[in-house]
Design a protein around this nucleic acid. Sequence first.
DNA 1: ATGAAAGCGCTAACAA
DNA 2: TTGTTAGCGCTTTCAT
Lengths: 341, 341
Amino acid sequence: MRVSLKDVAERAGVSIKTVSNVVNNYQHITPAMRTRVQHAIDELGYRPNLTARHLRKGRTGIIALALPELANPYYADLADAVIDAAAQHDYTVLLDLTGGRRRQEAQVGQGFSARVTDGVILSPVELRPEDLRNRDDDAPLVLLGERPGDLPYDAIAIDNVAAARTAVRHLTGLGRRRVAFLGGHTNDAAHPAHLRVQGWREVLATQGVDAPDALIAPTDGCDRADGAEAMTRMLDAGEPPDAVFAYNDLIAIGAMRVLSDRGMRVPEDMAVMGFDDIAEGRFGAVTLTTIAPDKRTIARLAIESILTRLQNPDRTAESMRKGELRPEYRLLERESTLGRG
Amino acid sequence: MRVSLKDVAERAGVSIKTVSNVVNNYQHITPAMRTRVQHAIDELGYRPNLTARHLRKGRTGIIALALPELANPYYADLADAVIDAAAQHDYTVLLDLTGGRRRQEAQVGQGFSARVTDGVILSPVELRPEDLRNRDDDAPLVLLGERPGDLPYDAIAIDNVAAARTAVRHLTGLGRRRVAFLGGHTNDAAHPAHLRVQGWREVLATQGVDAPDALIAPTDGCDRADGAEAMTRMLDAGEPPDAVFAYNDLIAIGAMRVLSDRGMRVPEDMAVMGFDDIAEGRFGAVTLTTIAPDKRTIARLAIESILTRLQNPDRTAESMRKGELRPEYRLLERESTLGRG
DNA sequence: ATGAAAGCGCTAACAA
DNA sequence: TTGTTAGCGCTTTCAT
């Protein structure tokens, strides 16, 4: 049977309170008393019941992290970083996988797992603003990625438009004139792909380079297979591009596989850029140039946002809203865009 | 402020119990009463406090999953599968990252997060039997991977020796005579690498092929960089192998990068096999032949083991121990070992 | 410095 | 069918 504070108290011949004091390392306990109680604790093998403690304190020490999937290493990295950042504040992380499905995301956003977690970090894909409207506001919510609509929650995302501009400028700087955009639900205005397409368009417009829709190959998913499929489609359409800016690294990797199958050289025949900086891009036959969002900062900001709100429960969410938090990103130049090709 | 059962009860002018009944969908409630209570619930925006429920029921609905890291896609896949399997039984998963460090693993094994979780799934790397000796036995523990020593816990792992034999036989079947083993802490008898080396040794012995220690390149870690480093070391040592069996896919991928750098063709000059079947192996310039453990079954068995123990709290752990559970594995033949080379 | 007692929000006996 | 009551194990005033 489980041993509780009461058991220890009886054993040590003291009150519950005293045992609690020892367990929680309070001041003002005589050393003699401390050792006596500690003795009883050890003998009985007492371990505090965290659930009870949580009930009493109103905090659980758990933060929910809802990600679309772990199959994309970007999210795995993010999870890693969040767990790390949470641990720094003695928090553990409950991981929820939404599959990028709106229903699931809405559930998490509404606080499905509420009351077990002190806060929720949600990385939405299909979530819509109205899904968060009448949210039970108890546990702070932070969005990872673009905020869908103007909602009173912190959203942590790099500047996708600017990052895309950086990427495309890098490509045109190589002398490439037909820069394609590969992947992403490019017609969904809320999806990051849309913002990256925007950056892509802006740079090409500035430089007087054509940016016809034929140079965009949207995809359903964002996986390697989707990239391969999109690349194939684009090559078969005739008038192939001389550079590809992929929505993310996985798509870029899928595309590169197709290029290699067709005997096209990267970067000579086709420069390729990705987005996310997953480790896989650093070890392929051709290493992948990419935009690297600062994942650790993203994670840190998310945790901090939640803890700040937790510490100021009196102030309304609106009043402390920082709004969009913009972590840094860097362009990492690798073989897939090397030299002038 | 939070609204509790009591608040709803007052509002509806009924007892707490009745509200509880409605919330829990009990039988024997008049429809009239049900709607009346439901009304109050909706008006007040009541949501049950799960912590309190857990305290009362002695169950939290949370299972801890402790993995070394998420950077290795094998573990990411595993996490994915476990979260899925848990969800099927209305359980959520608390994810703990141990970094493969013994101290951390021991903490988890001892039930560090105990009392918040109903059970613990631990994938140990450096854990030693004594770390689990005087375990607080409250929450069931399942080991993912080989069991370190003969402990009274279920351990779920494929037959690593047999799988390695399958792999090496595939390689020798290609006519390769110098089959190297790459990676893993091969001198730690408890580490899976040791078992795979054993399988490797057995096959080579049977076939009268040399298996000198020079054909083993141990590594510290199990990452792509470790694979690259090990491959380099082996090539530089002279008398290069004509086939490589890597401890895992990441090491194989690192090795292939080095081979490509040196102008060696895979599989013509060097056949390469991995282990784990991570998605990355299906999209490289040369797709990777590998051993694919049945991850979904591993996950399912882990969850089932915990639930079974939870449902029979009276029976001792020892009496219901299934011991080693052995999920299936398959050899997936891809380009890296194609034809006879 | 230590003890007594109330109560966090819920469920489960038992009563009515 | 619904209400009353007693805890689950802990922290926290308030006494002492």
